[in-house]
Nucleic acid binder design. Structure first.
Length: 413
DNA sequence: TCTGGGGTCCTAGGACCC
DNA sequence: TCTGGGGTCCTAGGACCC
């Protein structure tokens, strides 16, 4: 049995690169990648965080997730451009098309990351990786890092080494030199909380964790502890999962531009979110059985309530009414900043037997489906509930829909 | 902190059952 | 009360990822 070879492909500063390429394609003479720049949310709408940064911006100490305000303090001449998700979905789709030429076994991990199984191929893996990297750069205009290893974990760790436009390997015999000296926070699945816990007991590098007794970590940090101990030792054997992985939940949330202080207004926000969750779950041909509402107040404190339904649903009104009840049960009356609804324990309609209870809701489902098709044809706001008129609240909140095309870049580079 | 939005998985405690 | 012992389901919260 020959050793497995897995590639992890990671787009360098994805949103920022894609934004830069789009602007070059549309006549801009500035390449955002070469100046201090970020893709950032709208500060006026209180969405002002850094979603992606250029390498020059990184040199000012700007990090993803920090507020745009503090990023501008670090670098006053910083250029901030708004995000355009449909654009990024298209760029991502184009990259996947390229990957498919190299292996039939590809797992899309996120909008800007994918695993590719390169086991048992005739071509030498480093040659293939180099061709792949160059093809993406020449044809699509952006660069990627490729990590190569015997499993997904090591491939992913390798793609994170030095950037941009680089290929790195991380096989079993390289773990000690290339991975063990790294700080513990660099290990996949060690976040800031776990970092602090590990440091408090003298574990500072990935090697420190790897050399700790397995049972000690397991009994201390339970399942997640065992997982990161195995990762530190390069142990991971999940397959590259080809094809669509069914969603287990759909959720949408929004940070309002202003604090919501009345129940009526809060209900409207919940209805607008319910519209999107209903639309998405119907589009997936699925129903969910658990509805959860979470709110974040002006002090940034969050709390949630959930309820399991007797019968799974994808009906906008059922989602809304449940969400409203949950909200009324938990809200303490303080000003609210963020609202979120989640529909989970999703089951496909094909597997979900229509019960007598559900058939009562046939009319409701017909109405939802009719509205969905009108919105699909004439736009999301072609049918809206009258309560949203002059309310200052969007009638549907959340979601991403793609429309433009992604041109080839070969003429420019 | 002038702090987004979409996901997955895990844990702890209480209810309830045998 | 010196207060069984599992197992499963449910809810709230938290950790992590991009």
């Amino acid at each position: 049995m020959s050793e497995r070879v897995v590639f992890h492909i990671d787009v360098n500063s994805a949103y920022l690169s894609w934004e830069a390429v789009y602007r070059l394609q549309h006549g801009s003479c500035i390449d955002l990648r070469n100046i201090p720049s970020i893709v950032g949310g709208d500060q006026e709408k209180r969405h002002g965080i850094v979603l992606a940064k250029s390498i020059p911006a990184k040199k000012y100490g700007i990090i993803t997730g920090e507020s745009v305000h503090s990023a501008k303090e670090k670098c006053p001449e910083l250029v901030s451009v708004p995000p355009n998700y449909p654009r990024y979905v298209l760029a991502s789709d184009e990259m996947i098309k390229v990957l498919e030429k190299y292996s039939p076994n590809i797992q899309r991990y996120s909008i800007d990351e994918a695993f590719l199984d390169f086991s048992n191929r005739d071509e030498y893996f480093l040659d293939a990786a180099l061709r792949l990297k160059e093809e993406i750069k020449n044809n699509l205009g952006f660069t990627v890092n490729i990590g190569i290893g015997p499993n997904k974990l090591l491939a992913k760790m390798a793609s994170d080494f030095s950037k941009p436009d680089r290929i790195h390997t991380l096989f079993q015999n390289e773990i000690k030199d290339k991975m063990h000296p790294l700080p513990i926070r660099d290990l996949f699945m060690v976040g800031s909380r776990t970092e602090k816990k590990l440091q408090s007991r003298g574990i500072f590098t990935i090697g420190d964790l790897a050399n700790t007794k397995r049972d000690y970590i397991h009994s201390w940090l339970k399942k997640p502890g065992l997982l990161i101990w195995e990762y530190a030792n390069g142990i991971e054997n999940s397959p590259v999962k080809n094809g669509l992985i069914p969603l287990k939940s759909v959720g949408n949330s929004t940070t309002m531009p202003f604090d919501v202080e009345s129940k009526e207004e809060a209900h409207k926000v919940l209805l607008a979110i319910s519209e999107m969750i209903g639309l998405r779950s119907r589009d997936l041909n699925s129903c969910g059985q658990v509805i959860s509402v979470s709110i974040k107040n002006h002090m940034f404190f969050s709390y949630s309530h959930q309820r399991k339904l007797i019968v799974p649903t994808n009906c906008t009104n059922t989602i809304y009414k449940t969400a409203r009840d949950l909200f009324d049960e938990m809200w303490q009356g303080e000003p609210l900043r963020n609202f979120s609804i989640n529909l989970s324990q999703l089951v496909s309609n094909d597997f979900f037997q229509l019960s007598i209870l559900e058939s009562i809701n046939k009319k409701e489902e017909m109405l939802d489906r009719t509205i969905d098709s009108i919105r699909l044809r004439y736009g999301q706001n072609s049918v809206i509930r009258s309560c949203f008129l002059y309310s200052g609240i969007d009638p549907i909140i959340g979601g991403v829909v793609a429309e433009e095309a992604y041109p080839m870049m070969s003429s420019i580079l």
